[in-house]
Amino acid sequence: MSDPLQEIIRRPALYENVDGTLDLYFGLMLTGTACICYLPELMRFLPPGIAGYLLAMLGVITLPMLFGVWLRRMVRKYITYPRTGYIAPRRALPGKFRNGVLFVVGLSVAAALLASVAGLSRSDTASLAVRILLAAAFAFPYAVFAIRYRSRQPWKPFAAAAMLAGLVLMAALVPGGVEQWSRPAMLFTACGWFLSGFVTLWLYLRATRALTAGAE
């Protein structure tokens, strides 16, 4: 018999993204990753050699990550906690380690699949099937995310479907090889995450009220 209280116990974990900051964070990370694809073009504006390479890496990976962490902290401190309350998740939650291992294994399998498809794309650059497979791989993390948060944000699975449809449309319409297509596709995916984050935040702000002094 499954635990009838499991859903309630899991609710605080879903509260982590009640304001859409996780979407915004992943959007920033993905924008940084997309910038790596444009690295050869970016490198022309940077000093040659290892210094330029390190600057580029700092710009496209570290800065978006740090900005994402800062943004998330600020939104929580000044918007979320005063409106709907503060929580500190439990560190040693039963099953958390197992879930972490499953997540890492899942991510490794997804990366391996993506690498295989990318390898395949070099041998057959014109193949629409390969592009559609890559489109599904790009949309997959958001789809998992949308399913996880569907009880709090029921519109997210539809957003995931829209993201996939947009990526497939791009796969069919953008000319050139897979490499030419994957750059705008990655930026499109990042924009999808951003849009999802802003919509979540907007809906959250509409549904909640700011704390007034002495309200508690």
């Binding site: 605080p12 509260y15 503060y86 929580i87 998740p89 439990r90």
Partner: peptide, 18 residues
């Protein structure tokens, strides 16, 4: 109690909201 079991701590406002 079920909500608090998944948390180290929370504030009163969170419980009112949830």
């Amino acid at each position: 109690v079920a909500l608090l079991s998944g948390l180290e701590e929370c504030d009163y406002r969170y419980l009112v909201h949830e």
